[in-house]
């Protein structure tokens, strides 16, 4: 078997299509055994690997405009895998996967120091302040592909890595049985739960390194400039921090693209990347 070229799984989220309905949140919670508490209105302690923020243009009625922005883990590559959280983890509980570009989280290694949460500029990481409790009977729906987390550890979006493993296992089996030519996955063989569920089709997922994948075609990442999108409609969150994230956003509205980074008030028009 020849050595496969490294993958770089990433996402493009079309904010013109995203309606803020919240299906991605629940698809994620349901797929990844994310627990819930009687009161989830304190969003600081509410675990949502995928979270949908509401942005607004700050203008009074009737010029007001709002836009929803779903935020999974951005799976930052930083500079050669030095993503903000990976760099600070003293337990190697989180690591950058050079083969996939996915930032992992190993719950049994994590001892809850929460340095990674402090380091993450996207608030994508969550701490389990309590043990998860499912009402009697509800643990029946728990997904065996994803381990249930315990009190005292940090968790976050994994780009549904277990789905990658399942797809890969299947491909290896089929290859061994002579049913396919290679163990390389097709674009639709590995998709995250949120991508699959989105009723508006606003989320696209795939390999940013693969020119035949839609994420590559839409985002047009510029490898010479740390993956910056060449598509003028596309932007990444806090681009100027140099985190080199793998989640790209599309918007036709100027104010939305501008809301993606902390521009100074007088900083002029948003520069095209």
């Amino acid at each position: 078997m020849k050595q496969e070229r490294p993958k770089k799984f990433g996402m493009v989220i079309d904010l013109d299509k995203c309606t803020g309905c919240g299906a991605c949140l629940v698809a994620c919670m349901s797929e990844n055994n994310v627990p819930f508490k009687p009161d989830e209105s304190d969003k600081l302690t509410s675990i949502t690997w995928m979270r949908v923020y509401q942005l607004n243009n700050g203008k009074p009625y009737p010029e007001t405009d709002i836009c929803y922005l779903p935020r999974p883990c951005q799976h930052c590559e930083g500079d050669h895998g030095h993503s903000p959280c990976v760099s600070v983890c003293p337990a190697t509980a989180t690591d950058y996967g050079m083969e996939t570009g996915i930032v992992s989280q190993i719950y049994t290694r994590c001892f809850g120091c929460r340095y990674c949460m402090a380091a993450c500029p996207y608030h994508a990481r969550y701490f389990n302040w309590w043990d998860p409790v499912w009402p009697d009977g509800m643990e029946k729906y728990l997904n065996p592909s994803v381990s249930v987390r315990m009190r005292g550890v940090v968790e976050k979006c994994s780009f549904c890595y277990h789905r990658y493993q399942t797809a890969k296992d299947k491909a290896i089996y089929q290859f061994a049985e002579g049913e396919r030519d290679s163990t390389d996955l097709e674009e639709d063989e590995y998709q995250t739960a949120c991508t699959q569920a989105c009723p508006a089709g606003a989320i696209i997922f795939g390999d940013l390194n693969n020119p035949s994948h839609r994420v590559h075609q839409i985002a047009q990442p510029d490898e010479k400039h740390a993956g910056r999108p060449k598509n003028p409609k596309a932007f990444r969150l806090l681009e100027r921090l140099g985190t080199n994230p793998k989640v790209y956003y599309l918007s036709s509205r100027d104010w939305v693209r501008r809301a993606g980074d902390n521009y100074l008030e007088g900083e002029g028009k948003l520069k095209r990347h």
Binding site: C21, L25, S30, N143, Q196, C198
Partner: peptide
């Protein structure tokens, strides 16, 4: 055990998509 509800691909009404209530 039922562990996850997903939208049915190719269905004339929702073609794979599913709403937040259906998922729950």
């Amino acid at each position: 055990r039922a562990v996850k509800i997903e939208g049915m691909e190719g269905h004339p009404i929702n073609d794979g998509g599913i709403c937040i209530l259906g998922l729950s």
